[in-house]
Amino acid sequence: MNISQLRARLRAITRGAALALCALAAAPGHAQEPWPSRPVTIVVPFAPGGNTDMITRLMAERLTKAFGKPFVVDNRGGAAGLIAAEYVARAPADGYVLFMSTLTQIVTAPMTNKIRYDPVRDFVPIINVGGNPFVLTASTRNNFKSLDDLVRYGKAHPGALNVGHAGNGGLTQLSALLFLNRAGIQATMVPYRGGAPALADVLAGQIDLYSASVSEVMPYNGTGKVSLLAVSSDKRLPVLPNVPTIAETFPGHEVDTWNGLVGPAKMPPEIVDRIAAESKKIIAEPEFRARLEKAGIIPLGETRDAFAQRIQKDRAKWKPVVEAAGIQPE
């Protein structure tokens, strides 16, 4: 072999090696560290405190143990959680940014707000952790002892009941409207800047009714300061065993504002499935379930397909309620 042939052979070997390296580098998953190789952020759409934050911190603590990497809570409150939702929708879909969503950001927001994300196209459901039902909470001024008392009064006095809520398009408004529609009651809706002032006016006898989250009214249970008439879950709650369900009077009535983990839409399916599998184990833990139930939260553990079906069902439920209320996106 002469020098020219040797040089040609070396060039061919070099080209072949370079092509092999390029192909190897382009192969799916090559040189990628296994997930998770660094901290994972779970975005919460509200300020610290409250059910959503509490659920997220409980999950983050246990997911950290399950995966051996920190799961960090990032509170991004504002605009009923829409700021947080948009942030996650635009985040890299690599499994390192997750969102503890509520029904509002995924279901009702497109019906009541002009949003800059698509709740179907931009997110993948991972697992629905728990449902937080509402309690029809009445002032003591009308001396309602039962849901039947409220319905009889409301039908006999159209428009006389003042119903507070924590802002147009929110679940405290929509849950109340759904009940009123089913009961055939005309009432006057009174908007507040949040749930706390609405509940304060119920306690003070300034308004008649408020559809509160369970955790809001638990401190007043049995005090005689308000009347807890009925819960919106399909079954009675262990923490309020003597409070009937709305469904006992109006069969089929069920309302809750769930908390579920979702991620950016293009997250790798294997990562979605791993998070869902570990989360389902966590939700099945007796201690974890007890913590949720003590706060009036119903443990669910619905993974991707069941969670997606719930979302579709909730859209079908709330669309006519929003339309009947005349709420326009703003």
Rank of each mutant, 00 (worst) to 15 (best):
A230Y: 08
H30G: 00
I115P: 06
S227E: 13
K317S: 00
A89E: 00
A66K: 14
A212C: 08
K235C: 00
I283S: 01
L147P: 01
D148H: 12
R57A: 04
N142P: 00
V88P: 01
R193E: 12
F307W: 06
G194C: 07
F67N: 01
I271E: 04
L174M: 12
P34M: 05
T104Y: 15
I55M: 11
V129F: 08
T140L: 09
S232F: 04
D118N: 15
L199D: 01
R182A: 11
A176F: 04
L6Q: 14
S233H: 11
N259K: 00
V107E: 03
F250L: 15
L237W: 05
A17G: 10
V190K: 04
N113P: 00
V120D: 15
G195N: 07
T140I: 14
W318T: 02
M54W: 08
G77M: 07
V255P: 00
A8G: 03
L98V: 11
N168M: 06
V72A: 02
A247Y: 04
P28A: 10
S37Y: 13
P238R: 02
G159D: 08
P197L: 10
E323K: 13
P45R: 14
Y220I: 03
E270P: 00
R310P: 00
P329N: 11
I106W: 03
G50T: 04
L98R: 13
I271F: 08
